[in-house]
Every structure is written in C-alpha cells, then in structure tokens.
C-alpha cells in the first residue's frame, strides 16, 4: 500500500516540479551560451541570469510550500476525506508524504548543482578534467583513510536525518494545530515556534551533558596515539577525531527528535482525527 501511496504522491507533485526543472535547465543552457559567445554581458544575458537566480530561489520556496500543502490540504482538509477513507495505515500516509518531500528536496539540490555545471561548462573545462581527477585521487590516496571516509558518510547521514527531522517537525506542528477546534493554522505556527524552542533547550542540555562525559573519559590533548611529532598531518587526524565526537552525538539526538515527531504526528492523526 505504501508503494501505491508513493506512486500517487509522486504523480501529484511531479506536475508542479517538472516544469520548473525544465525552465531552470533551459535558462542554464542559455546562460552558458551567453558566457561563451558574448565578451561583454548585454541586457539579454543579465536578464536570463536574473531569471535563473529567481527561479532557483522560487524552486526551494516551492519545495517547502508543496511539502506543507500536501500534508495540510491533502490530509486535513477536504481531500482528507478521501485519503483517510483508503484502507491504509496512518503511518503509511505520513511516510509517503515524508519520503516524497525528501525525494524532491534531493532532486532540487541535484538539479541546482547540475544547472551550475551546465552554466560553467566549456571545452577548456573538459580538458582540465583528467588533471583534476588525477589530483583528486592523489589527495584521496595520501590524506583520506577509513576514519575520513566514515566521517564523510556520517555527515551525509546527518544531513539526511536532519532534513527528515525538520520535515517531521513541520508535520508535528500542523498536527498539533489540528487538536484545537478553531484557529488551527495559527496554532500550528505557534506549535512550530514552541517545538523549535523546546528542541533548542533540550539540545543545549544534551550537549553540556555530552561535554561532561567527554571531560571525564578522554585525557586532555589526546584522542589517540598522535602525541609523537606534532605536524599538520597529526593536527588533521586530531581534527577528524574531534569531528567524530561532535557528529555522532548530533546524529543520535537528531534521530531521537525525528522519531518523537513521527510518533506524535501518527498518534494525533490516528487517535485524535477530527476532520472539519
């Protein structure tokens, strides 16, 4: 059932995003042409560049507007009469909205990066690529070990979970707004601000606790056996070690917040549903 929900959720949102993607990529190609064939930027070149920037901003506004609209309008307004009459579990409804929102955020980021590459693309750049790859592999071979690779994936994972958490916080706030009879949208805004403050306070307390634990368990000035000869290499090693110590606890608390928001949203929509 989740698969089917995803299929219809993608279909309902794709018709909003695809035209914008098309326009952005088209403008990127136009910009590239103006860069490569005009020595002095003329009015048309400036205009397409401006349009491009405006569209990129609009795209990221659109992602969030669609994310909120699909949850609020499709589940809690008139269309909710259809969605909640489907023989699916509430968590599947929430998950389908969440997964598709994250998917569009990722695709929007990808399209933006791609459009920058398209604008910057030229034959000179193409010639530079083998040299760049050689230097990159050199760098990777000399300076990047298991620890750095793990750190990289920790960061990627943190970004993913952080994004999921921020979407779920919006869902939770809208659901809290649904608990009251009147002024539901206003309550949702209030709930969002309230949740942000609570999250900030808990995070601060949590990190002061983590700091204390570290103070007691790790001897000052050493995160391993790097005391011999103190060069830039060792400094980098130590820096990576310190980053692990920040990223991992951040990951843990972000996961906890996400789970709490999901459970809260699911509880309200399953047990406190009152469609207008």
């Amino acid at each position: 059932m989740l698969k089917k929900l995803l299929k219809y959720e993608i279909r309902a949102t794709a018709r909003l995003f695809l035209p914008v993607f098309g326009a952005i990529l088209l403008l990127a190609i136009l910009n590239n042409i103006f860069f490569n064939f005009n020595d002095i930027p003329d009015f048309a070149a400036v205009l397409t560049m401006m349009l491009y920037v405006i569209l990129i901003i609009a795209l990221f506004v659109l992602v969030y507007v669609v994310m909120i609209q699909r949850f609020y309008k499709n589940l809690l307004r008139d269309e909710g009469y259809l969605m909640f009459t489907l023989p699916v579990r509430t968590w599947q409804l929430i998950a389908s909205k969440l997964i598709v929102s994250i998917m569009w955020l990722a695709i929007c980021t990808f399209v933006t990066v791609l459009s920058v590459f398209i604008m910057a693309f030229s034959l000179d750049l193409l010639r530079e690529i083998p040299e760049f790859l050689r230097q990159l592999s050199d760098f990777l071979a000399h300076y990047v070990g298991i620890s750095e690779v793990t750190l990289f994936f920790e960061f990627v994972f943190l970004m993913l979970i952080g994004t999921i958490g921020s979407v779920l916080m919006i869902y939770a706030a809208i659901s809290i707004g649904h608990l009251v009879g009147k002024h539901r949208v206003l309550t949702a805004f209030g709930a969002y601000i309230g949740l942000s403050i609570v999250e900030q306070i808990i995070t601060n307390l949590y990190f002061s606790l983590v700091g204390r634990i570290y103070d007691h368990t790790i001897p000052y000035g050493s995160y391993g056996a790097y005391q011999f000869g103190y060069g830039a290499y060792d400094f980098a090693r130590e820096f990576v070690g310190a980053m692990h110590m920040i990223v991992i606890p951040t990951l843990i608390i972000t996961v906890i917040f996400s789970v709490v928001y999901f459970i809260l949203t699911n509880y309200i929509l399953s047990h406190r549903l009152n469609l207008e």
């Binding site: 018709r15 008139d78 269309e79 259809l82 023989p87 579990r89």
Partner: peptide, 20 residues
Amino acid sequence: GPDTKEVVSYLPERTYLNDW
C-alpha cells in the same frame, strides 16, 4: 479503524476529489 475501511464505502457530503 483501518480494518473496517475495507468493508465500508463512504460518500461524504462534500467534494473530496482533487480537481486536476
């Protein structure tokens, strides 16, 4: 609950279908 949704068919008093 979800178990009864399969056996009940409900027509609400409002338009609940999206228009696109």
